[in-house]
Amino acid sequence: MLLPTVLLLGYFVYGLIAWSFNTSLTDRHTARKGPASYVGFANYGHLFGEDRFLNSLKNLGVLTVAFIVGTLIFGLIWALLLEKGVPGESIFRSIYLFPMAISMIASGVVWGWLLNPSQGEDARGLNRLFEILHLHFLENPWWTAGSRWTTMASIALPAVWQLSGYIMALFLAGFRGIPPELREAARVDGASEFKLYRHVLFPQLSPIALSALIILGHMSLKLFDLIYAITGPNQFRTEVPAVYMWNTLLRSDMAKSAAIAIVLLAVVAVLVIPYIAYTVRQENEE
């Protein structure tokens, strides 16, 4: 019964990855069909000797950290605020969560407009809002100037906006899954509210936090649409490997594109494979 699935995924996931990997070892630097010769890992060597690729990797690293930290913080705060049940909870929950339903392209179109770098009199977007509210110190050039951190944090901002609600939902489910007896017992022992969270509730949530980390991490590593929509495809400051691969395709350099894609896959695999192994092993124990 599983055979069709195994065959399909065998080809379309593993077979095609092997195909990409194979291409990445050749000198197929053109769209022309025909034989290509193997050059070993030369394409990878070139990539890692290239400023542009290293820049895209660094951008990716910073983006991932900014995105994960931002999303976890907002998600956790919202979950904490809602966890004990407040009137109107379902309204808050729904509104916090709804950006999740929107495509990255749509949100990129909107945020690209909000993150306009003009300031002062000419300010547009969020800067204009800060101008109106007299919060001049908040105005900034977003992704167009400044350090790698401010640049990639600006790109992470819309992603945080989209996914914090999701993380909130995860944590909320986690809180609600904790048996009420645990809280009661802690209270009876005279634990303070802070200690209750610190020593009783948070440890219960750590598996969820781990899942959230993996989910967010692999989403961030694959991020493409949002950057494409906000900054356009060829912008050095915000280029990540997924975007660089699209740029490389412009010159029909199949081998280099494949090599970039395989590096990206390797980065994701480093994150995900231990996690899958851990998951499967845990299940076996149960």
Partner: peptide, 11 residues
């Protein structure tokens, strides 16, 4: 989990 870039061109 795979980044679809890794299979896109052969696909």
């Amino acid at each position: 989990f795979i980044p679809y870039q890794a299979i896109m061109l052969p696909l």
